[in-house]
Design a protein around this nucleic acid. Structure first.
Lengths: 151, 151
DNA sequence: TTTTATTTTGTAATGATTACAAATTTGAAA
DNA sequence: TTTCAAATTTGTAATCATTACAAAATAAAA
């Protein structure tokens, strides 16, 4: 099934009217798992929807967020990044190439006693550092930062 | 050992000159594990340092961050929150009372194959939802949001 | 149609953070 | 001390992603 059809189905399942704009935005996120920003989405769709407003992108993403059709990528960047992959997974942000990588998080729930009985609605696991590619490309620069020591 | 002495030692260990301002800011964070914002730190220290500038708070926190004496709390709020507890732990943000709770994360490293060989410098685990207190206080409002379903 | 609700749009605020240069303080050398 | 250079602190002015808001456009209902 293509991204447009998937988007329509997802919207309908949440009883959101599948307007052209909403379909485009959700389909773009589904077919471009690059964790785009509002501006990236806006620029990408402008040729197809010349009347598109950036406010609409903001509004639509808020709507999709509320309905859990997209997630915020918990990477501490100036601009927010969005992800239509709503399955639990982690994100790694490389501070050199600024790419965001997905990684799987353990299936086993974290069962911390401190938050027992809390209603968990959003989970976010994100790391940052230097990805493998950039480590190899910048061997000489690597010692600027020491390897992170857990605890 | 009191927070001021600890702050001085931590700064010296990183070869940062322990100026009055730096000591105050780090000691405040150490003795107030409430994950304060820049403004909260600024307001709290103003009586003691009447000449304090908010820019200095920003500058000092940047310096402490670079030296890993404080961490950014990965909670998606308008303002950034800081934490002098640099041990690995998670944060839970309650969207009702807006308190940030600490919780322990599993000692076992997440060993995701997708980021094997990556240089991990910063880790962030943060959840949000409704804390236990607010769930009980707002029983009637609870059904506005369904419980988060993992995956 | 006409009416009403929904969606989209454009413009103007908001406000946390950053840039930057001046002012102040500190520490080392003489 | 006194002098001088470096480090630190400060205030003001930008920046710029996001939000507020009301008007315009569109779609559905009557």
């Amino acid at each position: 099934m293509n991204a447009v059809d998937t988007a329509v189905k997802l919207l309908q399942a949440k009883k959101i009217r599948p307007s052209l704009t909403r379909i485009h935005i959700l389909a773009y996120l589904l077919s471009h798992p690059i964790h785009p920003t509002v501006d990236q989405i806006y620029q990408a769709l402008l040729p197809q929807i010349p009347t598109l407003s950036k406010t609409t992108v903001y509004n639509t993403l808020d709507l999709l967020l509320e309905n859990k059709l997209v997630k915020l990528v918990g990477v501490e960047q100036r601009e927010k990044h969005y992800d239509a992959n709503t399955k639990d997974h982690g994100h790694f942000f490389c501070r050199i190439c600024e790419k965001i990588y997905d990684f799987s998080t353990p299936a086993a729930e974290i069962e911390a006693p401190e938050i027992k009985g809390f209603q968990i609605e959003v989970k976010n696991v994100s790391y940052s550092g230097v990805c493998s590619d950039c480590r190899h490309k910048n061997k000489h620069k690597e010692d600027e930062y020491e390897k992170f020591e857990g605890n």
